[in-house]
Design a protein around this nucleic acid. Structure first.
Length: 761
DNA sequence: GTAGTCACTATTTGA
DNA sequence: TAGTGACTAC
């Protein structure tokens, strides 16, 4: 069948419209990937050289999948398309052009840990209070600044940013930012944001007319998941697209309803601005859902209609046959784990589902444990995406630290990590002196290492010298030697191998195996060079490129080994995926939606979009679960069912056992007095807390109607006791009251009136 | 210099 | 609870 015949009329129009700016608003399961891949295949069929086509995707994995799908239509030429994530494509450009902005071409990439530890050290050097200046909070501040193109100078002139910092009682954030930038430059390192920020800088300063080069190269630009791009990414695209005589061949695909990365700077404004920036824009809406059955699609529409801001769009399906959505009400998180495992077992028997068609989704990675326990108990194979990945393990990071140093000795985070690990007689005091000297003279740690002005005892000096020789030797080899051979030598000569071998505990053995797995990965990498895009020759396969590649891997890129396993992951991780059967778990107030989102309505809207993404992953079976009681930080917490459950019409539900027989009864189910509930999970701490609760006689308690709860009223809550209503907001069925309870550690609690048991006094 | 203990504290999502 | 950083004892 010809590829164009596999498309519906709207899809086909979007695919064959090859020139000018195009926006495709694509609902979940509407064939978005198909449109994108066929459009690129179509361009190639029309004679456009594949290396003139750029496609920016969200994960490396989806870029690869896309290339493979294009290949099915146009053959091997497909592999010459520039397809990858923003970060990986831009890193590649920066490697080629680094010298123009004062970076080595083998610059290091600092991951979140490197950045945080560098910031921690800057905060210490500046003698700032580490409590007020929380390193990871500062990191997100700096990230926010970069994503909005604010240099330190612009930051200082930005009244909003400065006053926010003052309000947070940390007026020196911008100074930390400035120092941080210097340090990165000195270390020849870029963090994730820099890969965008520095590229933007390169294009703006435009040495040697470099923008021209890339404008000519990328004649057709595609962006997947456009709703998740931030201002900086948009600005870079604009640089590439907006100039005199530009054909503006840009094709973006997105869905405002699936925007779930606002927390890291993504903004829907990009979709709205797009229409303004490109007056010739043609917009297509893909609304037919080919993925899910009727009840799922309807539920998704109902939920998303509660969001205030959205582009008008209603997804629909012609799939009539349909299972209802199952709702599992559980008393505890443990019961939730058990019943999900049981349901999976049952589904597998009844419908012969392979494990790979089943996914368990949760809001936070920490929730995976209970599911793991119960799946293991049933001997069901599973894999976890996200959480601690291979390259985040300590032993792997240590080894990689040495490799980074061999490639770029100025890499200060790598140097600090390994300089005395395994121990080689370089004390913390010596390292501190090194850092002070480097700061004083504004030289890199690597230079400071052999600076005669360094005031240390002869023994330490000798140790430093030996370390210097060791690393210099690797560094010289890094440019010519085979990466795998060099890495093997580094593992031995660094002393890491001996150190790891010394630990014969099971964990120790697994650490050794992980280090050796890095060697295997490097061999695999060097043995399979990808073709160079312009020449088609086997491309560069240096250690430096390997390091760059692994630092840009994301969780979603983890491969499956072809085993038939159940997938466990966060809802964020599930974006773009689909499964026959999906379990969306932990649907409780404060968890999903997260309590972090309660402060601002935009936050709640984002949680709702996240829920929308979660349920639309399911093709045939959707199961929603919640637990009344759940452990958090070692303590039991009680939660109400998520408001999102209330936003789905009952007719889509099939309620299975648990607390009460039906949904309505769950709302009015008699609530056990706190003491007896805690008693069944007795720990000394819980007991104490329970006895501190105000004693309210459940028998004499008569809940008032939600309408009776108004701001200023004094109310009684079975669990929290007496409280004052500060405010009430939200529409009729979703009213939320902010209440301050007497003797409560929280300044206020937000209570969903529909679920709450409150009595006006 | 290292290993072990203790107390504290953070609580989301991720390239 | 789990991870971390500071402190202590050898």
């Amino acid at each position: 069948m010809h590829y164009l015949d596999e498309l519906n009329p709207v899809q086909r129009e979007a695919v064959t419209q090859t020139d000018g700016p195009i926006l495709v608003i694509a609902g979940p399961g509407s064939g978005k990937t198909r449109v994108l891949t066929y459009r690129i295949a179509h361009l190639i069929e029309q004679g456009i050289p594949p290396y003139n086509i750029l496609t920016l995707t969200f994960t490396n994995k989806s870029a690869k999948e896309m290339k493979d799908r294009i290949e099915k239509v146009v053959g091997a030429r497909a592999q010459q398309v520039w397809a990858g994530t923003f970060h990986s494509i831009f890193a590649r450009i920066l490697r080629a052009e680094a010298s123009k902005i004062g970076f080595p071409s083998s610059f290091s990439i600092y991951d979140t840990d490197d950045t945080t530890s560098l910031l921690r050290s800057i905060i210490k050097e500046k003698n700032l209070d580490p409590n007020a200046y929380n390193a990871s909070a500062i990191r997100s501040r700096i990230s926010l600044a970069k994503s909005n193109l604010l240099s330190p100078t612009a930051y200082r002139e930005n009244a909003d940013m400065m006053s926010q910092d003052r309000q947070q009682r940390r007026p020196y954030v911008v100074d930390i930012y400035e120092t941080y930038l210097n340090r990165c430059q000195r270390a020849g390192a870029m963090d994730f944001d820099d890969l965008l920020f520095q590229l933007y800088r390169l294009f703006r300063e435009n040495p040697d007319n470099i923008v021209e080069k890339y404008r000519n190269r990328f004649r057709y630009i595609h962006v997947d998941e456009f709703q998740d791009t931030n201002f900086l990414q948009y600005a870079i695209l604009r640089r590439l697209l907006k100039y005199d005589g530009s054909p503006e061949n840009v094709f973006v695909v997105g869905d405002d309803a699936q925007s779930i990365y606002a927390f890291r700077g993504a903004t829907i404004d990009n979709i709205l601005d797009f229409e303004k920036d490109y007056p010739n824009l043609r917009t297509y809406k893909l609304e037919q859902n080919y993925r899910s059955t009727h009840h799922i699609v309807q539920a998704a529409n109902e939920v998303i209609s509660y969001n205030r801001k959205q582009l008008q769009k209603t997804i629909w399906t012609d799939r009539e046959e349909s299972n209802k959505i199952k709702l599992l009400k559980c008393t505890t998180d443990d019961e939730e784990g058990r019943r999900v495992a049981d349901s999976i077992l049952e589904q597998k028997h009844r419908y012969h589902l392979p494990n790979s068609e089943i996914a368990i989704l949760y809001r936070t990675n920490a929730q995976s444990r209970k599911f793991e326990e119960h799946l293991r108990r049933h001997n069901m194979p599973y894999r976890i995406i996200g959480g601690m990945s291979f390259y985040q393990r300590k032993e792997v990071k240590d080894f990689v630290g040495y490799l980074r140093l061999a490639v770029n000795p100025r890499d200060e985070e790598a140097l600090r990590r390994v300089i005395n690990y395994p121990t080689r007689g370089i004390s913390d005091a010596t390292v501190d002196k090194l850092v002070m000297l480097a700061s004083g003279k504004n030289i890199s740690l690597w230079e400071a290492l052999r600076d005669p002005a360094l005031d240390v005892n002869p023994k330490a000096r000798q140790s430093l010298h030996n370390f210097y020789l060791l690393v210099s030797n690797w560094q010289q080899r890094a440019e010519k030697d085979l990466a795998s051979k060099l890495a093997d030598d580094i593992l031995r000569q660094s002393g890491l191998l001996v150190h790891l071998k010394a630990d014969t505990s099971p964990e120790g053995i697994s650490r050794l195996e992980n280090a050796q797995a890095v060697l295997d990965a490097i061999s695999e990498f060097t043995d399979n060079p990808e073709p160079d895009l312009e020449t088609g020759e086997p491309g560069e396969r240096t250690l430096s490129l390997y390091l760059q590649t692994i630092s840009l891997l994301s969780d979603a890129d983890e491969k499956n080994d072809g085993q038939d396993q159940i997938t466990l992951m966060s809802v964020h991780g599930a974006k773009g995926l689909e499964f026959k059967s999906v379990f969306v778990t932990g649907l409780e107030e404060t968890l999903f939606p997260s309590f972090m989102s309660f402060e601002d309505p935009n936050g709640l809207d984002e949680e709702r979009r996240l829920f929308y993404v979660a349920i639309t992953r399911a093709k045939e079976f959707l199961t929603l679960t919640f637990a009344k009681h759940r452990y958090k930080y070692g303590q039991i917490r009680e939660n109400d069912p998520s408001r999102f459950l209330e936003e789905i019409d009952e007719k889509h539900f099939d309620i299975v056992g648990g607390i009460g027989a039906g949904r309505a009864s769950a709302k009015e189910a008699p609530v056990s007095p706190r003491a007896s509930v805690s008693g069944s999970f007795a720990t000394p701490r819980n007991r104490q807390q329970a006895s501190a609760q105000p004693a309210i006689d459940p028998a004499g308690f008569k809940p008032s109607a939600p309408d009776a709860i108004v701001a200023g009223a004094t109310v009684l809550h079975l669990k929290f006791g007496e409280g004052k209503v500060l405010s009430v907001d939200g529409a009729k069925d979703n009213k939320v009251a902010a209440i301050q309870f007497k003797g409560d550690e929280l300044p206020e609690r937000r209570i969903v009136l529909k679920f709450a048991k409150l009595q006006v006094m």
